[in-house]
Design a protein around this nucleic acid. Structure first.
Lengths: 230, 230
DNA sequence: CCAAAAGTGTTCGAACTACACCCATGT
DNA sequence: ACATGGGTGTAGTTCGAACACTTTTGG
């Protein structure tokens, strides 16, 4: 135990809440679950947990993410701290929100039952506990900005994806339709995708070519002052 | 006292650290002070304080800002939470960083002595304790983005300012020179400044006209889908 | 009269927008 | 053969970047 430097100060519970986003059926979905303890047991909630002693806050979020998705090393970013005195109806808890982007195919579906969880379309949200709706809202603004300037969207797709898929994803993120030809022109100009000799025929008879994000190429371009923009 | 819902969880000290920025001598300055208690007593530190019981985290930051500047209702925004286990060399403290923008003329200069504080040019930073340099760095990236898309820069200037002053400010924020004619063209096009019939003659013989930011006009334009951009 | 900062427009190229038709194939 | 979604290019416009000279006035 370290020396007690700050004896006169008070301590707080600190939690992390995770906004876990996936992409399915042309829409962003968020992983919600029914809260397992009081207060508000049974109400819809983001995935979260208390920060433990000796655990830094990013680790705390990582742990929640791994537990709730079955995936390690998800893309994740801090949204911010939420500290209204009465935000938690139980005791005072300061919460730090993180969002994560998951390829919904990698998600371990058995965990839904275990956590009483559900992937929920953003267009079909139930009431959420505490300030979780605010956290989600803040996340979505952040994601809009981020996805426009960094290649984070690919985290929401399988490794191999088609251009129509990618466009639908961006339309979901921006909540507005994009012009097909302009969208593809931009992508082609950036030259960060590998076109595969393989087609996805699930959503059309003609089939759409698969592409992969080439991270090595992207990193090389970055060094030359290139900026991602979509 | 509320019911003890979360008995099995541990609690943490939570602090706020404030990155207080001013603009002086064509440079951004940050208000630093010599830490008044152990550990690292006497080292350069951001302004900060512990969150108190019953105080929400924004309030905690506001209090620090008011105490350290003598100004109420500063422009302020959360940067994020910093929670490495060993970030504080004393005990474990989770800190939430906020940045604030102050018109350095409004600043109560007597407080410098009281807090053993100093306005420090960013180009001339000493070593800072803990992760305070990281906080400052994160703040500056955030400010760059924010200042480009929202009229927050005016918070760093007196109510009446000249265009050369404003340009120098933006050059300091972006850390890169701007073209005078293009800068002024943009501002003129946005039509959110009031030109006064009064000149500042402090920095030239000819004198430069004073302008004021017209917040009402800006807000009206926002409703019409206008976006600030500099 | 001269040094020092304020003020002012135009041109060029890049990037964005809008827009319509043919292609491939499973049924 | 036809319905369905995949794929492609161009023209017009807007926006940002580059750029040089005149004005004012205190010393």
């Amino acid at each position: 135990m370290s020396a007690a430097f700050y004896q006169n100060e008070v301590k707080f519970f600190v939690a992390v809440d995770c906004i876990i986003l996936g992409f399915n059926n042309k829409e962003l979905n968020v992983l919600l679950h029914k809260r397992k303890f009081e207060p508000l047991k049974g109400e819809w909630s983001l995935m979260g947990g208390f920060v433990k002693s000796g655990e830094n806050i990013n680790e705390a979020a990582s742990h929640v993410l791994t537990e709730c998705t079955g995936i390690d090393n998800l893309f994740m970013e801090q949204v911010g701290a939420y500290g209204d005195v009465t935000r938690d109806l139980g005791e005072r808890v300061i919460s730090i929100a993180y969002y994560a982007l998951v390829n919904i195919n990698d998600f371990n579906i058995d965990l839904l039952e275990q956590y009483d969880a559900k992937w929920t379309k953003l267009s079909d949200l139930p009431e959420l506990i505490f300030d979780h709706k605010q956290m989600l809202h803040d996340t979505l603004s952040r994601l809009k900005r981020k996805a426009a300037t960094r290649p984070v969207g690919f985290n929401l797709l399988p490794e191999k994806f088609t251009l129509p898929q990618l466009q639908t994803l961006y339309e979901a993120i921006y909540q507005s339709p994009l012009d097909k030809r302009n969208f593809r022109k931009k992508l082609h100009a950036m030259d960060i995708l590998e076109k595969l000799n393989e087609k996805d025929k699930k959503s059309s008879k003609r089939g759409a070519f698969y592409y992969m994000f080439n991270k090595e190429k992207y990193d090389r371009l970055l060094d030359d002052g290139f900026y991602f923009s979509l």
